[in-house]
């Protein structure tokens, strides 16, 4: 497998994790309180969707670029 496009997907993963961080920060400011269970409720579905999306991308790029 080519290292370049896998690295690109890893960068994409990091970029989306920064978006999640910003969402958590905004929600915390909105409620003026950090609630761990609320953060988990946001983060888990987000990460599941993100990983599914990246797995689909991985399959597409593996077929097309390798």
């Amino acid at each position: 497998m080519s290292l370049k496009w896998i690295t690109a997907l890893f960068f994409s993963f990091l970029a989306y994790m920064i978006v999640l961080f910003v969402i958590v920060v905004l929600v915390t400011f909105y409620y003026q309180d950090f609630d761990f269970s609320r953060t988990v409720m946001i983060s888990v579905p987000y990460i599941i969707v993100l990983i599914s999306y990246l797995v689909i991308m991985l399959i597409i790029f593996k077929i097309k670029l390798d």
Binding site: A8, L9, F11, S12, L14, A15, V19
Partner: peptide, 8 residues
């Protein structure tokens, strides 16, 4: 950064 979001 934005390219990493929309690029893939």
């Amino acid at each position: 950064y934005v390219m990493a979001l929309v690029g893939p």
